[in-house]
Each structure stands twice: as structure tokens, then as C-alpha cells.
Design a protein around this nucleic acid. Structure first.
Length: 257
DNA sequence: CATCTGATGTGCT
DNA sequence: GCACATCAGATGA
């Protein structure tokens, strides 16, 4: 068993959950009317967990097909948090010099990148943050989740995000809850304990199918973020996001034109 | 809007 | 030792 390298003890998280009990039949007051309308439509549909065959796609294909899918996180008290994936990045493994698996190198940290498609790869970065990836088809290949459109449990997300901030900070806007790889991990309470777990079978985290696939014309492809100098790999168009979506972390106006 | 800085600790050379 | 798939706050335009 891995230790959870976070300064936030799990007990504190549970207390936060209990101080804001889920009210499944009530409108979440943090939604705008427009958001709630969109969400109601979502809840009327019969949703289903994505199965293993969904993840068995090449890294770039999976990164694009993940756009629009719903990430679900169930908390210990039964509360379910939901967010729609709106931004991803491909890390191809082997030849990709920006990938943790560059050169086909396997380490204790990146083991999940070599596990079966649908395995979560969660690692700690800058000492205080986490990033979540999903293993794809291909040795050492995985997709980084960069941004979510928060759909359900925004009040909880606000709490988890603000826990790490100063007490006098203002409430975050909805668009700032999950618009970054480590922000979404904070909001969805995803940490190192999820590393190497399987989205196909895990009781606390999974993906639900969104029927309306994002069309190619609505997907912006551009450079990845924060990978420094990785030679020719620095500028390859391996970041994908939904065109015009306000929940994306960083927009690339040049790529959008 | 753009750009800078400090926080923070682990993995890997 | 040092780089690091980041974030929030501050500053200047």
C-alpha cells in the first residue's frame, strides 16, 4: 500500500463532506440557470460506465475521444462529483521526449503508464499538486486530464479547492474550479492513492459515456503546456480541447484561427 | 491582459 | 543537486 503524500488528512476531507451533506433532489445553488438546464438534460439520460474497450485506443485517438466524457468521483459518504472532460494532452511514451516514459523507461513512479488501458496514473508534481492521467493503448502511453467543466457537486469542489487557500480568499468562480490538471485533482479529491487503479472497475472513480461525440471541427489541437524544452516534441500538437469552451485552462488563439 | 515569484518535496541523474 | 505535465497572488500596462 502506498502512503498518501498529502498534508490534508483524510479525516479532514470527511468532515468537510459531512458539513455539506449532499442534497440530491435540490438544485445546486452554485449553478447558473444555463448550467442547470444543461445538467438536467444530462440527468435525464441513462448513463453508463465506459468499459475497457473504450480505453483500448491509440493515445491521440483516446485523448480526442475523452473530450465530452464525464469523470465521476464517489466520496466515502456516497456523494458523487461529476465533471465533463474539456481538455486533454497525449503523452505517447517511448519516442515522446516530454513523457515520463521517454525512452521506454519504466520506474516506480510511471508504472501505471505501462499498465492496461484505463488505468489511472496519478503523480505528484511541484511537491504539492497531483496530475491525473489515463493509460491508453501503446507502451508507456497515457492521456493527461487538463480541465473539466464541473457538473455536479460544485459546492463540495469549492470546499476542497479552498481548503488549500487562505481563509480570507474569495469564493472561486465555477470556471476556476477544475481548469487545470492539478485544480481538477483538488476539486475531485484525486491523489496518489488512485495511482494504478482501474477506471473500468473502481468503486470510487469512473467515466460515464457522453453520447454526443465532439466533432473534429470542434476540437482544437495545439502545443502541450508546461513541458519545457523537449526538442521537437515541445511543439507537437498533442493538446486537445473543445473549441470555445470556457472551462479550458489555456486557450491557443493561433491554433483556433 | 502579460509576466514574474514563492511555495513545496519527490524522483531521478 | 536540480528539474518538475502547477497554482495563486502580485505587479505593470
Amino acid at each position: 500500500m502506498e502512503e498518501i503524500p498529502t498534508k490534508r488528512p483524510r479525516v479532514e476531507l470527511l468532515n468537510d463532506v459531512h458539513s455539506h451533506p449532499a442534497k440530491s433532489n435540490e438544485k445546486d445553488e452554485t449553478y447558473s440557470e444555463e448550467q442547470y438546464s444543461s445538467m438536467s438534460k444530462y440527468f435525464q439520460k441513462s448513463v453508463r460506465r465506459l468499459k475497457s474497450d473504450f480505453y483500448e485506443q491509440p493515445c491521440i485517438t483516446l485523448a480526442k475521444n475523452l473530450l465530452g466524457q464525464i469523470l465521476v468521483r464517489k466520496l466515502p459518504d456516497g456523494t458523487e462529483l461529476r465533471g465533463r472532460i474539456v481538455e486533454t494532452e497525449s503523452y505517447l511514451g517511448g519516442e515522446d521526449q516530454a513523457s515520463h516514459s521517454r525512452g521506454g523507461k519504466q520506474t516506480e513512479r510511471n508504472m501505471a503508464m505501462f499498465m492496461k488501458p484505463g488505468t489511472m496514473y496519478v503523480y505528484q508534481i511541484y511537491g504539492m499538486y497531483f496530475c491525473m492521467n489515463i493509460s491508453s493503448q501503446g507502451d508507456g502511453a497515457a492521456v493527461l486530464l487538463r480541465s473539466l467543466e464541473p457538473l455536479e457537486g460544485l459546492h463540495h469542489m469549492q470546499t476542497f479547492r479552498r481548503n488549500l487557500r487562505k481563509s480570507n480568499s474569495k469564493p472561486l468562480k465555477n470556471k476556476d474550479l477544475c481548469n487545470g490538471p492539478s485544480k481538477l485533482c483538488q476539486a475531485m479529491v484525486l491523489d496518489k492513492s488512485f495511482d494504478r487503479r482501474d477506471l473500468v472497475t473502481d468503486p470510487m472513480a469512473w467515466l460515464e459515456e457522453e453520447e454526443n461525440k465532439i466533432a473534429d471541427k470542434d476540437i482544437v489541437s495545439c502545443e502541450r503546456v508546461g513541458i519545457g524544452n523537449a526538442g521537437v516534441w515541445t511543439s507537437k500538437p498533442l493538446r486537445f480541447y473543445i473549441r470555445g469552451n470556457i472551462y479550458v485552462s489555456i486557450r491557443d488563439k493561433t491554433a483556433e484561427a
